[in-house]
Structures are given as C-alpha cells and as structure tokens.
Amino acid sequence: MTVLIISGDADPTTNRIVHELDKRSTPVFRCDVGWFPAGLALDAVLDGSRWRGSLGTPHRAVRLEDLRSVLFRGPTGFTFEAGLSPVELRHVRLEARLGLGGVLTSLPVLWCNHPARQADAGYKPLQLAIAAQCGFLVPATMVTNDPEAVLRFTASVPHVVSKVLGVNRIDDGAVVRIAYTRFLETSDLVDLEGVRTTAHLFQEWLEKSYEVRVVAVGSALFTVAIHAHSAASRIDWRSDYEALSYSVVDLPKEVAASIRRFLEAFGLAFAAFDFVVTTDGRWHFLEANPAGQYGWLEDVVDVPISAAVADFLAGAT
C-alpha cells in the first residue's frame, strides 16, 4: 500500500517525512496539485460508492485503490496554459478544484490532514472560539475593520499586539514582505484609518516566561519550549531565530487534554500548537497551524516528529 503525499516541491518538512518513509520501505507517490493538468493526470471512474483509477505523472502512476493514507501539506495552485482569458481561468480553476479535489477528498483512507478539515482550522477566529470551548486560556482578542473599535479595545486592554489572520508572508514580485507580530504603541493610535482596508486581529499582550510549540501527530504530543533572548524575538520569535534557545519540557495534563479535544473538534491528525507560558506558569493558547513547520526543532532537540508522522501514515500507530 502506498502513501500519497500532496505537497509543494520546496517544503523541507515533507522531505523529512519522505526520508522516514523510505527508511520503512513504505511506497510513496509524491505530487503537487500545482502540476495539474499538464504534469498530473487523473483517471477516475465511480465504482459503487468509491472512485477507482489512477493518479499519474509522465514518469509514474499510482492506483487510487492502492492508497493507504494521504499527507496533505500546503500544495501550490493549479497551473494552466498561457493565453486563457480571466473568465476562462476562473472556469478551469473551479473545474480542477471540484474534479481533482472532489475525487481525492472522497477517498476512504487515513488523512493527515483532510483538506476540508485543514481549511476549517485555518480560520483563526474559529480556532480561538473552539480553543476556549476546549478549555484553553485564550488572550483577549478583537477582529475588526473599525478604527473606533480598536480605540475601545486598547482602552480596556493594557498592552496590545497586532497580528495577521493568515499567512504572514507576502510575495510582491521580487520583494518578499514578512508581517511579524507588532506591539501597538501609543503613536500607532493617532491615525488608524488603515484599519478600514480589511479585517485586522488585535490581541492582548501577555508578559511571558517563554513560549512553547507542541506538535501533535495522532495521539503523540511533542513539546518544545522556545526561549527568546532579544527584544524582537520576545514579541515574535520568528523575527530573530539567532536569539532563540530551546528545551524539551513537560506538557501539563490539562493542556494535553485540551489539545486532544481541539484535534477532535476539527478532525485533525496533525497540528503545531503555539502557547505563551506567562510568569505565573499558566499556558495560554495562541494558535494551531494544521500544516505547521517543525523541522528546525528536530535539529536542536531530540523530538522524533517526522518518524511519528511516518509511522502514522504507514499504519504503525
């Protein structure tokens, strides 16, 4: 039985998992939906209640009925021939999503994660609401496009940061812009007209001892503390990796229980959870990324996450 991996070519985390599957002699078929339709072909026929057929590239193919599991990690978008009009592009893109996506997501196999469940978990406001329902401590949070609402929120919360709701990387041609978490200063409140342009997330700033990333793989939980040693990394540790140190820490039982309730609520098999541990020792939920990165953690501390993902996909756990 084969593991289907749907991922972009440049994802280093996927490379680690493929290496682990190779060590287990587990057959792998790796592709990116961005190859469709020129470099990826679908041949599927409905046989009773399931689709049978094949998914193939110019070099190899896999039978749909031979798949044991699917790893779905941030594939790129479809690629179509040049010269299509905007109307034609909208049409073929929708047909590809409903056709290829519809067949694949219907397959009765183990998913890590199912695209629909992963898409649901991508809504940060939904995450925060479900997190609170699952028993996590959640910082005071506002989502708004109203400058007056921001002033009201900042008047009631002592310290506030702004965050993006989605991916913090914006590719602008040759320029790559990164939107890190930003501490809101008094001067920022003088002119908030830019808030009207779209939805913004504002959240209570919590004075931290350290932060934690917990990577959940099925029932396994890997817990790594991230210690910030610069002013920039204390606001957003992604902004200054050189100023970080790491340690494996124990996961409180009540936090572990809430993580498992969260995974069950969204139907996820994998997620990377981020927490702030405040000076009083309490764990506060920030977010859960259903396709989060963890590879650099394996390089600095002993957390065999890729091996756990490979075992999960191969059916060992």
Results as ranks from 00 to 15, higher is better:
residue 55 L to M: 02
residue 51 W to I: 03
residue 54 S to M: 01
residue 56 G to K: 08
residue 75 P to Y: 03
residue 71 L to G: 07
residue 40 L to T: 09
residue 63 R to T: 06
residue 62 V to P: 10
residue 58 P to W: 12
residue 75 P to K: 01
residue 45 V to D: 09
residue 62 V to N: 09
residue 58 P to A: 01
residue 72 F to P: 05
residue 66 D to A: 03
residue 69 S to E: 02
residue 55 L to V: 04
residue 72 F to N: 06
residue 69 S to N: 10
residue 58 P to N: 10
residue 47 D to F: 09
residue 54 S to G: 12
residue 71 L to Q: 02
residue 45 V to L: 07
residue 69 S to M: 00
residue 75 P to L: 01
residue 71 L to F: 13
residue 48 G to E: 11
residue 49 S to Q: 14
residue 59 H to G: 12
residue 44 A to P: 01
residue 44 A to L: 04
residue 38 A to K: 15
residue 40 L to F: 08
residue 68 R to H: 13
residue 71 L to M: 06
residue 59 H to A: 14
residue 55 L to W: 09
residue 68 R to W: 09
residue 55 L to H: 01
residue 39 G to L: 11
residue 45 V to H: 13
residue 58 P to C: 07
residue 45 V to I: 12
residue 60 R to N: 15
residue 75 P to G: 01
residue 45 V to P: 10
residue 51 W to L: 00
residue 48 G to I: 05
residue 43 D to T: 11
residue 43 D to K: 10
residue 68 R to T: 11
residue 71 L to I: 03
residue 69 S to R: 04
residue 43 D to P: 00
residue 54 S to K: 02
residue 41 A to P: 02
residue 54 S to I: 07
residue 46 L to V: 08
residue 51 W to Q: 01
residue 59 H to S: 13
residue 42 L to C: 03
residue 73 R to M: 07
residue 59 H to M: 14
residue 58 P to K: 11
residue 39 G to D: 13
residue 70 V to N: 09
residue 44 A to V: 01
residue 74 G to T: 15
